[in-house]
Design a protein around this nucleic acid. Structure first.
Lengths: 353, 353
DNA sequence: ACCTATGTGTAAAACGTTCTCCATATGAAG
DNA sequence: CTTCATATGGAGAACGTTTTACACATAGGT
């Protein structure tokens, strides 16, 4: 009944040491290429390691020093924006000694907190958290223990680094685009700010204020409306239905995430409305799906890959101790116009009914 | 210059023991709810743990027993079929003590092998490998050390468990459907078998033979053609272009993965062909994108979520030692007809030119 | 000849768990 | 009042690394 007895015996540093006729300390030094080994010994030890096919035992390493593992937290693998970020991280870390492990925790704050703790408990050397919804206090306390980079939230901190996109600017780009096409009833569909998690400047929040500002800039503050929806197909679908069947259906909707935009698309389709003829639709993230032939969604590109690479680079600096003061990087978004936006219908009504 | 000195001190089992006035052995027993602790002691220890906010140090655990971590290997997070599998795994393991960590290794056999080794080195309790392309020998040797479930490959083994889909049957469903619509020039686009990795019955291979068999069953062996392509948007795109501009353009294409089907879609679009009027297109996996309003791709559902849940359950049985003989589970696929397939054009030519 | 500096190697103490004994207390049976 | 079984708690040895402290050469400078 005991956990399936390990069948094979691992090669340990002691085996290597014996095989090479040196001390384990020497082997360890070679392993970490630390100071105090002659070239000759280097050679001998390396040979022994190769011969025995030695691989360091990460758990044992974790007890004292590094564990050479970087943890990534994401809520949702399905959002392919995260895949872009991940690609960036992977590229950056590919030739290093670090292994990247992903915790896909779902949207729940509790699950996320649990996952973050798990990673810290596994002695990971560093963490990259993508728009965590777990309480900020939680993140702060974890970051006190393990170097951390937060992607997405604009709240700065002196304990973690962050990489954000200028979401406010992005919102402006979209509003400008839609207004220039002639739209005035432009609704923003964005995620509900993570309730009592104490993040003040979530991507959604910044996006919203950017949107409101831009609307005001065009003298459209009266038309501004923000609707909450989860960033998922279903979330978008529900928000879409509510909006289009409401008593002041907008001529254009901008969504805070491509996934949600597709849900809105589905809602519109079900109601017999066509995009863009009856409704202009703009996404966010410029995910691969947005570019799909059949979809052709106007969206805002955030250079996810670059964000990921930057985050990874920043994290490693911290892990290796080459930098000790926190920093924040901001990326500039870019509007990608496709076929889901066009001028509103001629009989563009300002009032309802 | 030394790695950012850990700022906070961890609460250890020793702290808990001292605080509760008992031995560390006792605390450990409570932790693992092992035999030999009175309810009174249980109580006291649990209280102490709560009070100090104790969390076990996974690396230390890894040195002796379990590490309560399950590793998942995927080549590509972008393929949302994997997200379905993952959801299944997560659901199954959500209320257990296990943490799920994902290694996204890319398509390369070397990278995958590296990632698998990483996971084993991190003393993970069990591994779920989704259609690994790293050599079978490699997988076998790792599975000798760590309980492993392989998803996808049909090759059985006495050392790992596996969960597969009856891909041959799935191919048959598609061919039957297309033939019943009147198609005869049906091409299969599938991934290149992982070169010299010694997997004989990869999903692609089984799919191919199922396809060939079904074509033969309909007396269409003369029309059967299999084209290789990577399971990615780009892979599908290239294969699509090649096929449609070749000298015997098919009236229907079936792809081994939805992602690739979308690439084919793009190629067709660029060539001015419409789906399904000019080309019937069938995917595989029944990914969420297939269901997208704008896409409406006929596809084969594999119940990824169920596959994931099953794999997780099987793995845990092995990890906890409740089962010691290998097993293989096969799922039955189901055809989902959408709008990307229809009868071929009237002037359906059998010959080229 | 002596001292000092430098380079090269090792011994051994951590690190935080698990788990196998072993010791003691308790109670029942004789 | 023994004797034996059982239930409960603890000592202490692993586990595989890293890292500190030190030993021993060798070489150069007096």
């Amino acid at each position: 009944m005991d956990a399936a007895a390990k069948r094979a015996k691992r090669v340990t540093i002691t085996d290597v040491a014996r095989h090479a006729g040196v001390s384990t300390a020497a082997v360890s030094k070679v392993l970490r290429n630390a100071y105090g080994v002659s070239p000759a010994m280097q050679e001998r030890v390396r040979a022994a390691m190769a011969e025995l096919d030695y691989r360091p035992h990460a758990a044992a390493r974790g007890m004292r020093g590094r564990t050479y593992t970087i943890g990534i937290l994401l809520d949702n693998i399905r959002n392919s924006f995260f895949a872009d970020i991940l690609d960036g991280i992977r590229d950056e870390l590919h030739d290093s000694d670090y292994t990247v492990l992903i915790g896909a925790a779902g949207f729940g704050a509790d699950d996320q907190a649990r996952t973050i703790r798990s990673m810290v408990d596994r002695q990971m050397d560093g963490l990259i958290l993508v728009a965590p919804s777990s309480p900020r206090s939680e993140v702060l306390s974890m970051a006190a223990t393990t170097p951390t980079v937060v992607i997405g939230h604009h709240d700065e901190s002196d304990v973690y680094d962050s990489v954000v996109d200028a979401d406010g600017v992005g919102a402006g780009l979209v509003v400008d685009h839609l207004v220039s096409l002639g739209h005035r009833d432009i609704v923003l569909v964005a995620a509900h700010g993570t309730r009592n998690s104490r993040w003040r400047r979530t991507p959604e929040a910044v996006l919203s204020s950017g949107y409101l500002e831009a609307m005001a800039r065009h003298g459209l503050e009266g038309h501004a409306r923000v609707v909450q929806a989860a960033y998922s197909d279903d979330g978008g679908y529900k928000a879409g239905l509510r909006l289009m069947t409401g008593d002041r259906p907008p001529t254009a909707i901008m969504s805070g995430a491509d996934v949600a935009a597709l849900g809105i698309y589905r809602a519109a389709d079900e109601l017999g409305m066509r995009v863009p003829a009856d409704l202009s639709l703009v996404g966010y993230n410029n995910t691969a799906i947005a570019a799909l032939t059949a979809v052709q969604l106007t969206s805002v590109d955030q250079a996810g890959q670059t964000m990921g690479a930057t985050a990874a680079r920043m994290l490693i600096e911290r892990v290796e101790g080459t930098r000790d003061r926190p920093m924040q990087t901001t990326m500039t978004p870019r509007l990608v116009v496709r076929r889901s936006t066009t001028a509103p219908r001629a009989e563009e009504g300002s009032g309802p009914h």
